[in-house]
Deep mutational scan, measured.
Amino acid sequence: EPLWIRPDAPSRCTWQLGRPASESPHHHTAPAKSPKILPDILKKIGDTPMVRINKIGKKFGLKCELLAKCEFFNAGGSVKDRISLRMIEDAERDGTLKPGDTIIEPTSGNTGIGLALAAAVRGYRCIIVMPEKMSSEKVDVLRALGAEIVRTPTNARFDSPESHVGVAWRLKNEIPNSHILDQYRNASNPLAHYDTTADEILQQCDGKLDMLVASVGTGGTITGIARKLKEKCPGCRIIGVDPEGSILAEPEELNQTEQTTYEVEGIGYDFIPTVLDRTVVDKWFKSNDEEAFTFARMLIAQEGLLCGGSAGSTVAVAVKAAQELQEGQRCVVILPDSVRNYMTKFLSDRWMLQKGFLKEEDLTEKKPWWWHLRVQELGLSAPLTVLPTITCGHTIEILREKGFDQAPVVDEAGVILGMVTLGNMLSSLLAGKVQPSDQVGKVIYKQFKQIRLTDTLGRLSHILEMDHFALVVHEQIQYHSTGKSSQRQMVFGVVTAIDLLNFVAAQERDQK
């Protein structure tokens, strides 16, 4: 057995438009009618409502009807409940999964919650491996369901041993009777949507819809739904939504950006999952974080739909894509998950301010006199920076000697690579993860907040409520011999709460 199987392995699926269902090699399930009293909570997966979006479509000038398939009504709160249950049931049916076995899954959280929910009911041990950027709410729900959680670096490539995929496979090879159901490759993922989600949409719309818009992560949702719609409703256009920084969209030119990270969760990847059939997507749109969270908040405030950030991405694209539809036509959007997962993220004004998705003037509360002053007023001194090749031991000596707790790590040209902190280095040394002679590049981390000289002290204040420091950066445009230009970030300084307090105190003292 291989040590790991690539999540982007070539698909062996034989589905073709027009091929009889009787030739399918898979076990198919028909939607079942729910009894009045459910035998367990797993029976509350599927049969989610279709809700008309009344205000947002009109606000953006849509002539067509805009409908939302509300997947956050599933038992675990997301569309991923469907595939989690289906993968477990299919693994039980073919004898792969037996009582007492362990389920391991690399996930952005929602599939993990679905699997942990099913594992709690069915009696399996469950280990979820997820990147650090995923919300604390997801972690809390997983723990409450009895799952064990392993976190991995957000910026690790999918084929790196440190990625959530790599760590999951390492655990599988170490733990007896453990299984990775593997949402990236498992046919049960798109089949769950082909058999149930798509049929529900067709039934709820009486077979009449002209466009379907869905955000894409593993691709199982859009693949399964689109294949069924292509068979039953061939005139329906399928629109895929991919965040900026991901590479799922086609044509490839759409993916060209210097951005590699994004805040919206559960969609987009740096590889093409095996289950994603991009041939059934008629057109791709890219979405960005700001519009995703703005539209998610709009869905909550104006439509009462308590959905997550990827739902915002989907609707932001839908109001663009559906401009081509006329009166009497219908566009369906998939709202994948609930706001429950993001209470401390985009639902929080403070978080939105820190990330730059909300401006101070958007909030009406009274601010102190210094709130709208610029960061450049602080008069920061030149920063202490270190090269990635310097040793951890030497870096600790320098920081202690100069009285700093942290320093930016830059390359020879001064471009920011990340940050090192005294606390992080000492804990890594004590844990045996690094040696004093190791290069400081081994303990770089990139989960820090950046701020510009033109940003306000109010925004800085919000950042420092949650973080010990902020890195002050400025952009530099560099022209190359080819005539092309590129933008790079340079370090201007490091600012802490002490710097802000000293500035405010000094100004008030001078005024007296």
Results as ranks from 00 to 15, higher is better:
K345D: 01
G240D: 09
Q435P: 09
K320I: 10
G240A: 13
G458A: 15
T482I: 09
T260P: 03
K286F: 01
F285Q: 01
H474Y: 12
D499G: 01
I451W: 01
Q329R: 10
I390H: 14
I416C: 12
K402N: 12
L378I: 01
D455I: 12
L422T: 07
S381Q: 07
T482A: 12
T389M: 14
S348K: 14
E265I: 01
S486V: 09
M425G: 07
D411V: 08
S427E: 01
G483Y: 11
C307E: 01
A301H: 07
E263M: 09
L353D: 01
E401L: 04
G493P: 10
E360G: 12
K359W: 09
Q435R: 09
L305T: 01
E303V: 09
S486Y: 11
S287D: 01
K433W: 01
L378R: 01
E377R: 04
L384F: 10
D337I: 01
G379Y: 15
A318I: 01
H474R: 04
A505E: 14
I444G: 11
L305C: 07
R459V: 06
M419V: 12
W369P: 15
N424W: 15
N341E: 04
S428F: 10
D411E: 07
S428Q: 15
R488E: 14
D455S: 15
R488V: 14
I396L: 12
K345G: 04
H468L: 12
L254W: 09
I398G: 14
K366M: 11
T421K: 09
G403D: 14
L325Y: 01
D349A: 07
I498C: 01
Q256N: 14
I463T: 13
A292W: 03
T279H: 14
M425C: 15
I267T: 08
Q478G: 12
D277R: 01
L325E: 05
E465V: 15
V375R: 01
I498A: 15
L353H: 01
V491Y: 08
H372F: 11
G423E: 12
W284N: 01
G245P: 01
L254H: 13
M419T: 13
S485T: 01
I267L: 05
H480M: 09
A506F: 13
R297L: 08
M490L: 11
G393P: 08
L335K: 01
K402A: 07
H462L: 11
S313Y: 01
T294H: 15
I334T: 14
K433F: 12
R374C: 10
M298S: 03
Q450A: 09
E324Y: 14
T257A: 11
K345A: 05
Y262L: 03
D349W: 01
I463Q: 13
E475W: 14
T364M: 10
V491A: 13
Q302E: 06
L453C: 11
L358A: 15
F295R: 05
T496D: 05
V241T: 12
Q435G: 15
E250L: 11
M490D: 12
M352C: 10
A296Y: 01
K366H: 06
K484Y: 12
K345T: 06
H468M: 15
E263W: 08
Q302A: 04
V472F: 11
K345W: 01
I272H: 11
C392N: 07
K345H: 01
V473F: 12
Y479I: 10
R509V: 15
L325I: 06
E290P: 09
Q354V: 05
E250W: 05
I334P: 01
D467K: 07
E465A: 07
D467E: 12
V317M: 13
G308R: 01
N341V: 01
T261H: 14
V415P: 03
D455V: 10
K355P: 01
I272A: 01
